[in-house]
Simulated scan of single mutants.
Amino acid sequence: MPTKPAANPPERRGSTSTFVIGLLCVFSMAVPARIAAKAGPARVVSLNLCTDQLALALLPRERIVALSFLAADPGLSALSDRVGDIPLVQGMAEEVLPLVPDLVLAGTFTTRPTIALLRARGVTVLEVGLVSDFDGIRAQIRQVAAALDVAARGEELIAGMDATLAAAAPTGPARPARVLSLAPGAFTAGSGTLSDAVMRAAGLVNYAADKGLQGYGYLPVETVAADPPDLLVANADEQGYPSLNGQMLAHPALDRAVPAQDRPAVPGRLWTCGGPFTADAATMLAAARDRLLSRKD
């Protein structure tokens, strides 16, 4: 008759050891997973041009689920070349909800019905406003970086921006030059604007603010021609699309008042939204300042 196999204590102990080791391996794999789950939002959607650029500057690609359709426009976004294969959305709730975001970044004027619906569905939304100076940029970078749990990366961006600003600042006393930024239709920026902050960072006087303009508004071409600025930034459409508003920037009176050599090219995308890249606009204005002053010495 068949007999019961004899017990093999050493083999049983080996099986038990293998089982325990397996449990430890599973546990050790689960701990990093839980830690990673706490390392900030992993599925981020941005619905605003300015928050698009903050997300691109702060996050790795794998944590960005979607950006606004403006993010890929090189005429508007300073970081359009980083968008790559990231999906783009128009800002409608039916686009965003299927993405199952754990954080949505939006501007204070971003599609209000979408924001209301997302919040009603329990989606976390962080709204950020417009900034008007470099202190505002620093605060906003820190705000968004904290929400994304990438505070160290935020400080890196701020340090890089501050180094760029320090290099752009004038190094000695000199007659302050006046600079005017004109967009199509003679639209410009006076005091209390981000453009004004960029000009001051480059050691320049904002012509429009000097004329008493606060915020954004218009200056008559006749005023500019009669008392021309030292430098003129004429922000025409970078893609070359003609318009009646744009033709004003080529007005013969402006051509005579400010020669081509005193018209530095500073892309509007650098100071449409505030970000670490905005310091590059100050660098470009500083270079134009130095060229101007070197001719006048």
Rank of each mutant, 00 (worst) to 15 (best):
G240T: 04
D149F: 10
V205G: 06
E95A: 01
I141M: 09
G192H: 12
T223F: 02
P41N: 07
N245L: 13
V125I: 02
A250T: 15
V65P: 00
D196V: 10
A78S: 11
C25Q: 02
I158F: 09
L213D: 13
V198T: 12
T188F: 08
V258I: 14
A145S: 11
A189T: 09
I137K: 06
C25R: 06
F19D: 00
G217L: 10
V221D: 03
L105A: 01
A225C: 02
A116W: 07
I115W: 03
G75D: 14
G84P: 01
T114D: 05
V221K: 04
V123F: 05
G154W: 10
A260V: 13
Q214N: 13
V100K: 15
L49V: 05
T108Y: 04
R178Y: 10
L157H: 10
D280S: 03
R61I: 04
A7E: 09
L231F: 07
G192I: 08
A226N: 08
A152C: 02
M248T: 11
R256I: 12
A55K: 04
G203Q: 11
D255Y: 03
L59P: 02
G215Q: 15
E156Q: 14
L293V: 09
R263G: 06
T108M: 06
A116D: 14
V20H: 02
A281G: 04
R138Q: 13
A186V: 13
A163L: 05
V179H: 10
S132A: 04
R119H: 05
S294E: 12
Q140R: 14
A152W: 00
A93I: 04
D230N: 11
V198L: 08
V100S: 03
A147K: 06
A116Q: 12
V198H: 04
L204Q: 05
M1Y: 08
G190V: 07
P242F: 00
D85P: 08
G84W: 00
V83T: 13
T114W: 02
R153F: 04
L67Q: 09
D255A: 15
M248Q: 15
A225M: 12
D81I: 00
N206M: 10
A209Q: 11
R289E: 00
A120P: 02
Q53F: 01
I141C: 09
I158Y: 00
R43H: 08
R295H: 13
M284N: 07
A209W: 12
A202H: 14
L130G: 12
F187G: 05
A169C: 11
A279D: 05
E11G: 09
P264L: 13
R289V: 00
L126G: 02
L59N: 02
V104D: 03
V198C: 06
A257I: 14
S80H: 10
A250G: 11
E127K: 02
G268Y: 14
S181T: 09
F109N: 08
S191F: 04
V221A: 12
S195A: 15
T272D: 00
V31E: 03
G160R: 15
T188E: 05
V233C: 08
D149A: 15
L194P: 02
L70P: 01
T164K: 14
L117A: 06
T124I: 13
G91I: 04
A7F: 05
L58Y: 04
L293T: 05
